[in-house]
Nucleic acid binder design. Structure first.
Lengths: 209, 209
DNA sequence: CCCTGTGAACCTGTTCACAGCG
DNA sequence: CGCTGTGAACAGGTTCACAGGG
């Protein structure tokens, strides 16, 4: 694994490749060329090849890529070759929706514990998961072998929750709060900013004409 | 407005600037320098200045940027200088959460209508919005003056719903389905792929060591 | 001929460094 | 002196074009 100098956008596209390859595998397709893969994702064939070679040589000239092995390979690269347990912090409307989101288990992520601080939520079940108090967070990270958290808390609480996650030794945070988190270098943070996404779209719509 | 050649990442950061500036305005801060703005967002001061000058000259040498006017300016650029009405398609768990998401109205987006195809959902209310059948979509786009949609439908339905939106004359789509949508060039699409975001994070966490 | 892998060319976006204004 | 705005240098990513394998 050469982890030196892989463009971030390339990693992002790896997810797209994986999704498409899983589809192809289900349809029974055995091999696929960079061009075919590219077309269905509206990318260029060169892009696909370049992206894949950042991580190794998976194709065969004249043939293309074998679907099944490449799926395995990409999962390994993305760290989803085994099921990854995840905790959720913040069980509001968004948190509840994420708890039930099928796309997570489908792609190898299982939310195994949920935390909040509202007393009236503690002890309740959402699906198979019981809501616990945030103070028990440390225990849970030990109990399950687990290194990622999903944060769906109000903006004003985000930094404190992030601090507690880092203190508990979390490896990465998927942050839904519209806040710039202050975290140690070694903790990976990836933010999903819903309102900002709408603003991006709004900009596109209202300047394209 | 010079809409030629603005880096996309710059537009993305505009959202961050706006959010921070709104905070500063609330705190009563009158002016802010590129350095101050940059620090709170973990960017470089040069980046901030460069980004802003893609859209005009808003600062004063020796002083910085006046918070209030810059907020107005950024809103105008992002198209949120007035409230934007939006429709939601797909009222599952995620759709419901988005209907209730405070971040949208806070940033000038109001979901004024919701659509689904499940008969048992039609006619029900979520918050102030009544769920209608997708067939009535065309009417709604006329009824409200509106050009953006949020799509929170299952992957298998995504392309068809997108087709119907485009047919109805939508201007842009915020897509939550993990699918590459096929849409006419003139329709702006912005995708939020939750599972892919987790995979990004997983990659960071599991290769950083 | 079809396809991959890859250096090289190209393009896009970021950082630097400084002129010039208040 | 502090701060913006900006060309110029630089870095990061993408596309091109082709050598070489099946």
């Amino acid at each position: 694994m050469k982890s030196f100098s892989v463009p971030n956008p390339a990693v992002k596209r790896l997810s797209l490749y994986l999704r498409r390859l899983e589809q192809l595998a289900e349809e029974g397709t055995k091999t696929v060329s960079s061009r075919q893969l590219a077309e269905s994702l509206r990318l260029s064939d060169a892009q696909v090849r370049k992206d894949l070679t950042y991580f190794g040589q998976f194709g065969r000239p004249g043939v293309g890529y074998e679907v099944r092995p490449l799926v395995e390979e990409l999962r390994r690269i993305l760290g989803t070759d085994r099921v990854r347990s995840v905790v959720l912090i913040g069980v509001g409307d968004l948190g509840r929706a994420l708890l039930r989101y099928r796309g997570f288990p489908n792609r190898g992520f299982e939310i195994v514990a949920a935390f909040d601080i509202a007393q009236d939520k503690i002890g309740r079940d959402v699906g198979a998961v019981r809501i616990r108090h945030l103070d028990e967070l440390g225990d849970a990270l030990v109990e399950y072998d687990l290194d990622m958290a999903i944060m769906a808390v109000p903006p004003h609480a985000a930094q404190e929750v992030a601090d507690r996650l880092c203190e508990a030794g979390i490896g990465g945070i998927l942050n839904f709060a519209p806040t710039t988190l202050n975290t140690p270098r070694k903790v990976a943070v990836f933010s999903v900013d819903l309102a900002a996404s709408m603003e991006q779209l709004s900009f596109q719509v209202h300047t394209r004409k």
